[in-house]
């Protein structure tokens, strides 16, 4: 069985870096991993040290492939391969028609995007599929898509495909959503709201909260002088504030604040070490 791990969180909390770190950690542990840029922001590529990803999987390193969901290509693959309409290419107007449908009829875009992710899970070519997802504001809509389609489409092959997707998402052994947050006000509140929606609508098998950029305690009472004192006092007040938010929403796992790192791939490499622990 291929496991699906989706990563989301409020904008700016470090979703892509943690998704890339998670994919790298599993790869190092010997799993065959596929990373998918579901959000289409390019963040995953940057954190894997690539300039861009394609719709076709590329090898990042042995055991780790990655791809991005290009909507137009995903739609054609969805209709031809997943739904099973051979010879769609000869139906030129139909392809255009469905592209228009995808941008107008609600839920289609999401079903096509999520469909690609779950299709890869069902192919069992990898042990783990890691999806770098849109922010929390949109991820509930994404996860809801198979149900939206099921409500609107009473029968037919698209309906069948949507039901297959729900099956994978609903399984707590197979599917997990990692919600990344920061020990700050807005990310904490938004994560709490998202958890509520996820629980109420049972949108995914299991959920895990992780908190990013957590500062270490300062193991001394002394104050120091000059610049030393300035840095210590700043650190202490930031640390105190973070602890309040950590207590309000206790995470399953915390990731440290990374000091002085310049590039996205450096950040992802460090975070993969943390995931490994």
């Amino acid at each position: 069985m291929t496991r699906l791990i989706l990563v989301s969180g409020k904008g700016g909390v470090g979703k892509s870096s943690l998704a890339a770190g998670l994919a790298l950690a599993h790869q190092r542990a010997g799993a065959r991993v596929l990373g998918i840029d579901v959000a289409g922001t390019g963040g995953l590529a940057a954190h894997l040290g690539l300039t861009r990803l394609e719709f076709k999987p590329v090898e990042v390193k042995p055991g780790l492939d990655a791809l991005t969901v290009d909507r137009a290509k995903a739609l054609i693959e969805y209709l031809q391969v997943q739904v099973g309409l051979p010879g769609l290419a000869t139906l030129g107007p139909a392809a255009r028609f469905f592209d228009a449908l995808a941008s107008t009829a609600p839920g289609v875009r999401e079903v096509v995007t999520l469909g690609k992710v779950i299709w890869e899970v069902l192919q069992r070519r990898y042990d783990i599929v890691v999806g770098d997802c849109p922010p929390t504001g949109q991820v509930t809509g994404l996860l809801r898509a198979p149900r939206t389609v099921a409500e609107l489409v009473p029968a037919g092959r698209i309906r069948h495909q949507a039901d297959l997707m729900s099956e994978v998402l609903d399984s707590s052994e197979q599917s997990e959503l990692v919600l990344v947050t920061l020990p700050e006000e807005l990310p904490t509140l938004e994560t709490e709201e998202t958890l509520e929606v996820l629980a109420k609508e049972k949108l995914i098998g299991s959920t895990m909260v992780v908190t990013n950029r957590v500062l270490p305690p300062l193991d001394t009472e002394s104050k120091g002088t000059g610049v030393v004192a300035e840095a210590a006092s700043m650190h202490r007040s930031l640390y105190r504030r973070q602890q309040q938010w950590l207590q309000r929403l206790p995470p399953r796992k915390t990731f440290p604040y990374l000091f002085g790192l310049l590039t996205e791939s450096e950040v992802a490499a460090r975070l993969s070490d943390e995931w490994g622990e």
Partner: peptide, 18 residues
């Protein structure tokens, strides 16, 4: 400064890197 406690010196180094 000399005789700065290690924890505080390390702290400044971290933030200096930042």
């Amino acid at each position: 400064p000399p005789r700065t406690p290690t924890a505080l010196a390390d702290n400044l180094r971290r933030w200096e890197a930042e």
